[in-house]
């Protein structure tokens, strides 16, 4: 059983974030803070979720793994990952989910919203940011992503338009908890789809040109080489050893 407060490991290159996280989010139990994902993997703290900044390389740690590479490394080590970043580009955020992150939260969100989202990821939910919901709706409308239930489609359409559960409930005559259930099913489908779809699938669905997503999207696992040198662009995959043992202890 998870503890009352979710256990969170924070990976962020900004000292001020690492030092203040526990103070700013008192409903979260911060079990460790790390400037790099490599140090996280070295220490392997037991955590319900890893809150991971996507931008981790800086002048002090230029070779640090970051972006989808960092996400994939943490996920590969058995962690649930919630990206916590200033990144707003939709395809990068989608690639983050495709790399296995269970949630994406913007640093621009109010603290209460961010804390709630991180808690939800720790509890096993998938958190999709508003900026990506519209993209998901496009994938569904273009039959790239199959959502069978009409109710799920309605909830997706409502969320894409920014409607709250209360507003949707008034329109669909459904309770908020029922709507949340539909949404949870949608987000699970989205997460699974993004992890299994190829960049070409997504490009085709979104009307992009061939190769437009290659520099954003995580490559197949076997394509990730061992070279941990700094990638030409931060969001591209870098390599790193993987440890498959679960750091979540009995909470998986």
């Amino acid at each position: 059983m998870p503890s009352e407060r979710p256990r969170v490991a924070v990976v962020d290159d900004a000292t001020v974030i690492r030092e203040s996280f526990a103070v700013l989010m008192p409903q979260i139990d911060v079990v460790g803070t790390f400037p790099t994902v490599e140090q996280l993997l070295d220490r392997r703290p037991a955590a319900d979720v890893v809150v991971l900044d996507l931008h981790l390389a800086n002048s002090a740690q230029p070779d640090s793994r970051q972006g989808v590479a960092a996400v994939r490394a943490a996920v590969g080590a058995g962690y649930r990952v919630c990206a916590y970043s200033q990144e707003e580009r939709r395809f990068v955020l989608a690639a983050t989910l495709a790399a296995g992150a269970r949630g994406v939260v913007s640093k621009a969100e109010p603290l209460a919203v961010a804390q709630e989202a991180i808690t939800a990821v720790a509890a096993g939910e998938v958190v999709i940011p508003q900026g990506l919901v519209g993209l998901v709706e496009v994938l569904v409308r273009r039959n790239s992503l199959t959502i069978l239930s009409e109710r799920q489609r309605q909830v997706l359409a409502g969320r894409a338009r920014g409607l709250t559960y209360a507003e949707m409930g008034a329109q669909l005559y459904l309770s908020e908890s029922t709507l949340r259930g539909y949404w949870a099913a949608v987000t699970e489908s989205v997460s699974a789809h993004l992890q299994h779809a190829t960049p070409a699938d997504i490009e085709h669905a979104l009307g992009l040109g061939p190769g437009d997503l290659l520099e954003h999207w995580p490559a197949p696992e076997d394509a990730v080489g061992p070279d941990a040198a700094a990638p030409p662009r931060w969001w591209q995959l870098a390599s790193g050893g993987r440890r498959r043992s679960s750091p979540r202890g009995g909470h998986q």
Binding site: G131, G134, A160, R161, L206, G207
Partner: peptide, 11 residues
């Protein structure tokens, strides 16, 4: 504003 624009469907 904390604004999200989802306009793809009207492309």
């Amino acid at each position: 504003l904390p604004l999200h624009a989802a306009l793809d469907l009207a492309e």
